[in-house]
Design a protein around this nucleic acid. Structure first.
Length: 267
DNA sequence: AATGGGACCTGCGCGC
DNA sequence: TGCGCGCAGGTCCCAT
């Protein structure tokens, strides 16, 4: 799933390859991805625009076209962006650029979203979003937990609590911090929260360095896989021995989401 | 405030 | 071989 490391990888790569290119042609193969605007109007407004800047907030990709025109992408579960044309399978909306690259929004399950807005700060998803984890000090991070009664895992995945953490990284960082995903957030000790903070920063940075986790459809803009899936410790490793204590990894549904963890060393 | 459910979607893996 | 079914996942929305 595209979470903070995957979206960061995509945004970094887009900034290297498509800045100041002009959008020459837009092709909408699947209208369902385009939200809040008629596809024909979308095509008309976007065609001829120049890509000024590519930004990220949480899992949202923001492409600045003009001072008051922003293209917004949300990859949701199965979306990915391609710049090189070998893997055009599932391409649903494509942008042909003046540097002869084609930017394609691909999405197997069609739950992704494309919007066109005047001011991205006004989007509901942006306004309600919690802080960026990589811009957060340890003290600020620990303060966020005051009075939170939710189980720690769904809390970490709550985008209004902290931005960019999804199902995969929530599980990996709880394993790293040796915390049971069902623990109530307000029952964690200061030591546990400090450990969780260092795991959060280290795992996100490492995953960005490895260009994300390709466990499903996610790819870099080149079509290559990210390398972090190879070092996942618990995600999708049910019944395999825990790398710390050898106890089999367990899968359990927590708050409606599949969750892998080690019941022996995550307390 | 927390929790649970359904909706959106497709492709995969399962049982038969 | 092939059918039908259930599941996965992020976000929003409704109900309790």
């Amino acid at each position: 799933m595209p979470e903070l490391p995957e979206v960061t990888t995509i945004v970094n790569q887009l900034n290297k390859e498509i800045l100041l290119t002009n959008i020459k042609k837009v092709t909408v193969t699947d209208k369902r991805l385009i939200k809040d605007v008629e596809p024909n109007e979308f095509i008309k407004k976007v065609t001829g625009s120049t890509i000024k800047e590519v930004l990220r907030r949480g899992k949202v990709i923001i492409i600045k076209l003009e001072d008051k025109l922003f293209l917004i992408f949300h990859l949701r579960i199965s979306g990915w962006l391609l710049l090189h044309s070998e893997y055009q399978k599932s391409a649903r909306v494509s942008f042909e650029l003046s540097n002869n690259l084609k930017l394609s929004f691909c999405d197997q399950r069609v739950l992704g979203e494309i919007r066109l807005v005047e001011d991205w700060h006004n989007l509901h998803i942006i306004k309600s979003m919690g802080p960026e984890p990589l811009s957060l000090s340890g003290e600020k991070f620990i303060e966020l937990f005051k009075g939170k009664k939710l189980k720690i895992k769904p809390l970490l995945m709550d985008q209004t609590f902290i931005a960019g953490i999804g199902n995969l990284y929530a599980q990996e960082l709880l394993f790293c911090a040796k915390i049971n995903p069902e623990k109530r957030a307000d029952s964690l000790t200061k030591d546990q929260l400090e450990k969780l903070y260092s795991c959060l920063i280290n795992i996100l940075k490492d995953a960005i360095e490895k260009k994300g986790s390709s466990v499903d459809t996610y790819r870099q803009v080149s079509g290559s896989k990210g390398a972090y899936a190879e070092v996942l410790k618990v995600y999708q490793r049910e019944k395999e021995p825990c790398c710390r204590c050898n106890h089999p990894i367990v899968r359990k549904t927590i708050a409606g989401r599949g969750t892998y963890f080690c019941p022996e060393c995550q307390k």
